[in-house]
């Protein structure tokens, strides 16, 4: 069972997002980076499936050289291999990203280039930053694979993925023959913390680097500029300090918000 988990490097935003002067990107001069949360769960799921069924877990990303940091996080979580589709700075759109990933998967299949070298291809349902909701479906379509999206429970039995998606009041259950693309949501598992020893080992694991091919696509989708919504500059009303504030809170709940009879 060979499993691929695709991840995206995104800024680790805090309480306020600051943009660059040209409005083209988030000012990351004071920020760290992380994996998108859904994708961190994709990596954990890949590792768990391999632990249960054998095989290899590969983590892949499309991004700049610095994105090796996120690949090494995946390796430290005990993924076996890592592939960087190395770009210059600047974000790739969802179609170019999907084409590049599909191309890399075909290349990994070897000379016959037929079929998928991975039995299970995991993506995040949507990235934390751009949230385009489409890379998984596009990769699946390019490779001729089925795609199940938004999954929060996944079991693999006899070459079939049994996948559940939350809906109002329950779960939709899908049963899909592998190989398949599955896009997951946070909550499907609890990503492990890497041990210090695993982190050290991950530093020495070789990352496979490839030049990504964006493919050719009719039409365009371009970022013009980013904008932070105007701050709500109305001050919060201070109801008091400590336990003494309780009576005033009750007044607000009863008279202003009207949730207390």
């Amino acid at each position: 069972m060979n499993v691929l988990a695709c991840v995206k490097r995104v800024p680790d935003t805090g309480a306020k997002i600051v943009l660059t002067d040209d409005g083209q990107a988030i000012d990351t001069s004071n920020l760290g980076f992380t994996m998108s949360p859904h994708e961190e769960c994709a990596v954990e799921e890949a590792i768990q499936v391999v632990e249960d069924h054998g095989g290899t877990a590969t983590v892949m990303t499309l991004g700049p050289d610095a994105a090796t940091e996120q690949l090494r996080t995946g390796l430290a979580m005990t993924a076996d291999e890592a592939t960087l589709l190395e770009t210059d700075d600047g974000e790739w759109g969802p179609r170019a990203t999907a084409s590049a990933i599909a191309d890399a998967i075909r290349a990994a299949a070897g000379d016959d280039g037929d079929g998928s070298p991975f039995d299970l291809l995991l993506f995040g349902n949507e990235s934390a930053d751009a949230a385009n909701y489409q890379v998984g479906a596009r990769v699946a379509t390019e490779l001729g694979l089925p795609c199940v999206a938004g999954i929060k429970t996944l079991d693999i039995e006899d070459g079939t993925a049994i996948a559940k998606r939350e809906i109002a009041g329950g779960d939709e259950v899908y049963e899909v023959d592998l190989p398949a693309v599955v896009t997951v949501k946070e909550g499907i598992n609890e990503p492990r913390y890497a041990s210090m020893r695993a982190k050290m080992q991950a530093r020495n694991t070789e990352v496979d680097r490839r030049d990504p091919d964006p493919g050719e696509h009719a039409g365009t989708l371009e970022l013009v500029r980013l904008e932070a919504p105007a701050d709500d500059d109305s001050e919060a009303e201070l109801l008091g300090e400590g336990a003494d504030a309780a009576p005033r809170i009750v007044e607000v709940l009863r008279d202003d918000v009207e949730v207390l009879g």
């Binding site: 988030i26 930053d129 949230a131 371009e222 500029r225 904008e227």
Partner: peptide, 19 residues
Amino acid sequence: LTRNRWGGSLREHTRIDAE
């Protein structure tokens, strides 16, 4: 068009062109 990023904590002005 304007679209949400980061769940709406950022807005993206985007240009889209296709048939």
